Computed example of a mutant assay.
Amino acid sequence: MLGDSAYATGDMLHTLDGKKWLPLLKPWPLRPTVEGGFTLDDFRYDADALTCPAGITRKRSAKGTVTFGAACRGCPLRQRCTTSASGRTVLIGEHHQLQREHRKRAADDGFQAHYRQHRPMVERSIAWLTRGARRVPYRGVEKNNNWLHHRVAALNLRRLLAMGLTMIDGAWALA
């Protein structure tokens, strides 16, 4: 499945993993809490426990939070980790491990090349579809459904003609 980062939620990755589909989705960017500091991927995650870059391990709560609290007070890496007086708190989602694995897979050169090859056409197609038609033009589902199908058919025909669709011996062919 190909898409941008809006589709790379934990729930979506879980659904795709259940269907054994390969997600070609741009992962959500990780932002450090301190500029130039540690991101979530700098922490080691093992069976509902999180270990910070300084080697301190804390368990995940039932609500998904991991609180390092007082352990951050004397930490030499604190300046790169948190500005909070009460220490670093990390929220771990239900499908955290799937998202982590996806970010690692997305950093691979093969993934990047495949994503760059196909993503521009998907984005361009959506732009063509919505150009001059940000809202549906008719009242009622049936009329708008017919309009949408005709618009998509016209865009597909325009794309095929641009790719060299011609008539050869009474049959359509791509040149």
Rank of each mutant, 00 (worst) to 15 (best):
V122Y: 09
G64L: 05
D41E: 15
W147Q: 07
E123P: 10
D17V: 00
R100T: 10
F38W: 10
P76T: 05
A54Q: 14
G3I: 04
E142T: 08
E142P: 06
A85M: 12
A54I: 03
S86Y: 07
L161G: 00
R44H: 12
A173Y: 01
L22W: 07
S61K: 13
R131K: 12
S61H: 09
L157G: 01
I56M: 06
I92V: 15
P120Y: 07
R60W: 01
Q112G: 00
L160M: 12
T33I: 01
V136L: 15
G64D: 12
L157M: 13
G37M: 00
L22C: 02
D11H: 04
D169A: 05
M167T: 01
G55I: 12
G37W: 03
C75W: 06
L98E: 08
I92R: 11
S125V: 00
F111I: 08
E94A: 14
K19S: 01
T83D: 15
P53C: 07
I92T: 01
A70F: 03
A54C: 05
G69R: 11
R151D: 08
T83K: 05
G18M: 14
L98M: 09
R44D: 14
G164N: 04
K20T: 10
W21V: 07
G93N: 08
H96L: 00
A171F: 00
H118Y: 14
D46N: 09
L129C: 10
V152S: 13
R116H: 08
K19V: 03
G37S: 07
T130I: 02
S61E: 14
D108R: 05
E142L: 15
L174P: 00
R158Y: 01
D42Q: 02
Y115H: 14
N156G: 07
D4G: 03
S5E: 15
A70Y: 04
T15S: 04
A62D: 15
R119W: 05
H149V: 07
Y45Q: 10
G110S: 12
R60F: 02
R103Y: 01
H149F: 04
R58N: 08
R31W: 04
V141E: 06
D169L: 02
A85H: 08
